[in-house]
Amino acid sequence: MNIIQTSNLKKEYDMGKVSVMALNGIDMSIEQGEFVAIMGPSGSGKSTLMHILGCLDKPTDGTYILAEQEVSQLTKSELAAVRNEKIGFVFQTFNLLPHMNILLNVELPLMYAGIGRTKRKRRAIEVLESVGLGDRLNHKPSELSGGQRQRVAIARAIVNHPSIVLADEPTGNLDSQAGSDILNIFSDLHKAGHTIIMVTHDHVVSQSANRIIKIIDGKIVDGNLS
């Protein structure tokens, strides 16, 4: 079953006199349970693709079906709900809220899902324990190492049982040891059945994935399912 299905996805940025075609007709399908790496040089449009796949942005044209729902024409609020229910993000810069301890950070998606306090706390602790941070619940992000912070971010990404986990250069800000730890966690998640899409420009990192999609100038040049 395809968890992601796009056809002729386009994104055009209006830069005054000229317009830039960041995505120029992406036809892509990703099956449930895949671990896919999206690769491309900077300016290739991989970030734009990731924003659209993550429902943070809308395509100018084309369709995008995520978990059997057409999402390319939804309103901002509907997109927020889709992000909350179906997508978990892992960013290069972790993007944790600095004033909250890591437990509250992981609870955040559940809070916006309208889940009660005790239930979401239980769930957040469970997930933090699974990434090996069960003893750091009351720590602020600034009290943790980079690798630990990224593990918190992964816990936050999967806490609401999303359809896909989107990771944008997840090892970009980590040393090689911490980076490979994080990639191992992604591999474990993959084995546990999660669909993972990772954007990267690093060949070594992309080897963790079981399929590599290459993008150049807003088009897929390699790695699509035939």
């Binding site: 609020s77 709900a81 809220l97 609401n160």
Partner: peptide, 16 residues
């Protein structure tokens, strides 16, 4: 702003 972005990413609506 970044915090707001993070909240939006994990599913906060404009209303929230």
């Amino acid at each position: 702003t970044r915090e707001i972005g993070i909240r939006l990413a994990v599913g906060a609506r404009r209303r929230d």
